[in-house]
Design a protein around this nucleic acid. Structure first.
Length: 701
DNA sequence: GCTCGATCATGATT
DNA sequence: CAATCATGATCGAG
């Protein structure tokens, strides 16, 4: 039961209108009886929400300094042309084919209505008020707003290498010179990628780019004392380039974000429009109601920083902000917004923090869907000061969120608690971690027989003119060691972060080998140590068996190797059936290419062009008769896994190890898929694709 | 040598 | 603007 179907909209996304039935009084906060709430009839207005996919009124979209053209970015040279879908309504623009900046194309303009008339959504610090006409959507993303907000812009890292000839006239010098505030980073120096039409694609691209920059900054900064916080460096660069999705606050679901999505940094939540404050736990917006400002909460992050109990997955008791155990909390800011949300009964997004021991800081954020505040009260905290408490209850009918995470955590602690198990370890102890075989779907008893192997079986002894060479690093290879020949071999830098995440896709990664002086603890030995995650082979609805993980997986994490028999040619069996377990390096998809993006945004020239990096290798592997968990990984045109050639025990560069890594953060229990690619003109070998991706090519293999 | 908490300094956003 | 359920580094305990 994968929760993330590529095509099926979640129940929450259909939720365009807030239900008006919960009626509550404006129960006074002071004094409040501890632990109880007053419910009585009320005239509290229902809050109706219109999805942000309303059309833009002509001219409401401000001029945007960032232009891109298809093909400007190398890897998009053969991508479909970006459709300038606002061109018709933007006929007064200088250029009729100005593509839409990402943050605007995702539809940040929205309006809220209630039975009493329009309820205008106004950003907190917006200095303008839109005319209160019902028909006009209020655009909260205007450039004038963002520029006038006066936020401190950090100069980005050196940006060069690309230029955009087309400079905007709207943001003229005269306009700019009037402003005293620090001006926004000139975006024209950065090439923005075309915003994908699909909101999910847009969100994924933002997160992927963020993490690519973050990893690269981390790698660069390791040798210096300066420059901490790669997450902030990456997000600052992206924010100043307006590379973000779903800008502008909104109530309810965020396009492209699905329940269960996981995040590793608060800034990721900000970049995709899920939760704006970089530290604050409560995000709220000012609405107007009866000509009065009325704050309502839109999202909260429950990261366990306050004294909360978290036993029930559908209930969240959230503490108000402020006080800091040194003072009474006050009914202001977020606390006031939550109180107002109680009465307005609007949906609030909840992002739950959870412990993940695979991560250094041990924290992960899970989007858990929409909740409503059902009660509030005041109690004395441990320090004796007043603390606001808000009881959130999860709206029914939504896909499982944090409950999936809690379930898999239990299984990891005690694998026997996993039900519907056919085989507790399909590898029979060959892998470091047992691999469950399960079937939640039908009565199939398991895949047909094969020999489980963690090693590749070569046709003949691997021959190479060169012999293995090793580094002379003692103990472990260090990032600043100029004498490390292995770092040298990888282009001067160690290819993995200190915690073992791949930093950038390369044609081949060279890990330390048997000839190296360093120990097995060396960070340049990742894939050679084998499987680290809790995988399970599971029965899919309609695609046979598949692979997924109990652990949440961070982008860049090594998953497993494609093992099997190296073969010369693809054989059919006695019955003329094709070998369904072939791996070839024939095709690399867009998303894998994009994985390397980011360093370009840092001003680094692309060192290797796509054609060099992704030139195919002669190796063909069949996992039909023998193999490992990789043989169960299905194809998808929107994959979450890619392959990366790695060398660590021989030098024959035509026959590298094929290692799989996570493209993006992958929630537990999400099916792992990679792009099988197309073997070109081999008719008859193509199979109908069932991946349900909006970008599905329709066939593969 | 580790892991785990507590504490601290430095933060970006609205 | 100042407040904020971040981060990562550092230090000490176990």
């Amino acid at each position: 039961m994968p929760r993330h179907s590529n095509s099926a909209p979640s129940a929450a996304n259909d939720d365009t209108v807030l239900d008006a039935k919960p009626i509550r009084t404006l129960s006074p906060m002071f004094p409040a009886p501890s632990g109880c709430t007053t419910i009585s009839s009320s005239s509290a207005p229902p809050l109706v929400y219109v999805t942000p996919y309303t059309t833009f009124s002509s001219g409401s979209m401000p001029g945007h300094p960032a232009h891109f053209t298809p093909g400007m970015f190398p890897a998009f040279a053969n991508s479909p042309t970006v459709v300038p879908h606002l061109a018709t309504s933007q006929s007064d623009r200088a250029s009729p084919v100005t593509p839409v900046p990402m943050s605007v194309s995702n539809g940040a303009a929205h309006v809220e209505l209630n039975s009493n008339g329009p309820l205008h959504a106004t950003p907190l610090s917006a200095s303008f008020q839109a005319p209160p006409t019902m028909a006009t959507p209020l655009n909260v993303v205007g450039n004038s707003f963002t520029s006038a907000s006066g936020r401190k812009i950090k100069q980005p890292l050196h940006l060069s290498g690309y230029s955009i000839a087309d400079s905007d006239k709207e943001d003229s010098d005269s306009k700019r010179s009037l402003r005293k505030k620090p001006k926004k980073t000139p975006i024209r120096d950065i090439v923005l990628l075309p915003p994908p039409q699909d909101p999910r694609e847009a969100v994924e691209m933002i997160l992927m780019t963020f993490d690519a920059i973050r990893r690269r900054v981390l790698q660069m900064d390791e040798t210096k004392d300066t420059g901490k916080r790669p997450d902030l460096r990456a997000s600052g660069l992206m924010m100043s380039s307006d590379m973000r999705a779903n800008k502008g606050k909104r109530i309810g679901p965020v396009p492209g974000i699905e329940i269960g999505d996981i995040f590793y940094f608060r800034m990721e939540l900000c970049l995709v429009g899920l939760h704006a404050p970089s530290m604050g736990g409560i995000d709220y917006m000012i609405t107007t109601h009866d000509n009065q400002d009325d704050p309502v909460a839109v999202s909260v992050v429950s990261a366990g920083g306050y004294e909360n109990d978290d036993d029930d997955v559908d209930v969240l008791v959230y503490s108000g902000q402020g006080g800091n155990s040194k003072d009474d909390q006050k009914l202001e800011r977020g606390n006031l917004a939550l109180e107002r949300s109680l009465h307005r009964a609007n949906h609030i997004r909840v992002i739950r923090g959870a412990k993940d021991l695979n991560v250094v800081n041990g924290r992960i954020y899970v989007y858990d869907g929409l909740y409503k505040v059902h009660e509030s009260w005041v109690e004395k905290g441990k320090s004796g000061f007043k603390v606001f408490k808000y009881k959130f209850i999860r709206e029914p009918g939504q896909p499982d969120g944090i409950s999936v995470w809690k379930m898999t955590q239990k299984w990891i602690e005690n694998p026997s608690s996993r039900g519907r198990v056919i085989l507790p370890d399909i590898s029979s102890g060959a892998e470091n971690v047992p691999v469950c075989l399960v079937n939640d779907v039908d009565n199939e008893k398991g895949p047909s027989h094969f020999q489980y192997t963690t090693k590749v079986k070569y046709l003949r002894p691997i021959s190479s003119a060169k012999t293995l060479q090793g580094c002379t690093c003692l103990s472990v290879c260090l990032p600043d060691d100029k004498n490390c020949s292995c770092a040298d071999h990888n282009g001067g830098k160690l290819p993995y972060s200190s915690s073992g995440f791949l930093i950038c896709r390369k044609r081949i990664i060279y890990e330390c080998n048997a000839c190296c002086q360093c120990t097995l603890n060396c960070r340049n030995r990742v894939t050679q140590k084998g499987v680290r995650l809790h995988f399970e082979i599971f029965r899919t609805k309609d695609r046979g068996w598949g692979l997924r993980s109990w652990d949440p997986i961070r982008a860049g994490t090594f998953l497993c190797e494609y093992t099997g028999e190296v073969i010369d040619e693809i054989n059919t069996n006695d019955h003329g059936e094709e070998d369904d377990y072939i791996f070839q390096t024939s095709h690399v998809d867009d998303k894998t290419l994009k994985w390397n993006y980011g360093p370009e945004l840092l001003g680094e020239p692309s060192t290797e062009t796509a054609s060099e990096v992704f030139k195919s290798f002669p190796i063909t592997i069949s996992a039909k008769n023998m193999g490992n968990i990789s043989r169960f990984m299905n194809h998808s045109c929107s994959p979450n896994v890619f392959w990366q050639p790695v060398q660590h025990d021989h030098c024959d560069e035509g026959y590298p190890h094929i290692m799989f890594f996570a493209i993006k953060h992958i929630p537990p229990m999400t099916e792992l898929t990679y792009d099988y690619g197309t073997s070109g003109l081999v008719f008859g070998r193509s199979k109908k694709c069932l991946c349900e991706s909006p970008k599905c090519r329709g066939y593969f293999g």
